[in-house]
Amino acid sequence: MHDLYAFVRGPLAWAAFGVFIGGSLYRLLHLLMLVHRKEKFIYSYMSWKYSLRSILHWMTPFAAVNMRMNRVLTVVTFAFHLGLILTPVLLLSHVLLWEESWGLSWWTLPDGVADVMTVIVIAGCGYFLVRRLAQPEVRYVTSASDYVILAIAAAPFVTGFLAYHQWFAYEILFILHILSGEIMLAAIPFTRLSHMLFAPFTRAYMGSEFGGVRHARDW
């Protein structure tokens, strides 16, 4: 177990962060280069003002018409994404690992709050799964990869939750938790989880087109 622990905590963690950061940079650069090579005109339409206007509107719950039309989904999706990003970043045990390895530390969530957020993320995954299966227009455009990325996102939280509460086989869950977190990190640039990277750009572009050219709202 010591070897395994040392492996997932050491080289594999390096690899996961490397793939995540390097891969993300690669994907973003590749996209920007593609813009540069073939759609340079996009630069001339980009506007900070309208990009931010659009991004902020779509980051504010219920600020867009479609969010008001799908109230439950809006609540779930905001809670889910907040939990998905904030919980791992602000979790005490994670920050301690950073401090032990790098001497870096920052404010952390009380474990009880993090626990609730974890449950919210897991429940959110469940909601998305049910929605995918039950809503015809979602089911129609669902492919196997959609279930895979949902599982990739859910796994670190399910294993983390079980490990935190020390239910079932603790040691195995602990290792699985680290492993699934690393899989998720590495998967972000190379699956459609990359919407995390690209969404600000697609949003900014549409915001700029709507604001600068079309003089209309895009929310």
């Binding site: 073939k38 799908n70 227009e137 572009y205």
Partner: peptide, 17 residues
């Protein structure tokens, strides 16, 4: 086509919204 097509196809999360 270029970046737009690529970004649109790869960013779409198939949510049906």
């Amino acid at each position: 086509t270029g970046a737009r097509l690529k970004a649109y196809v790869e960013t779409c999360i198939h949510c049906g919204l």
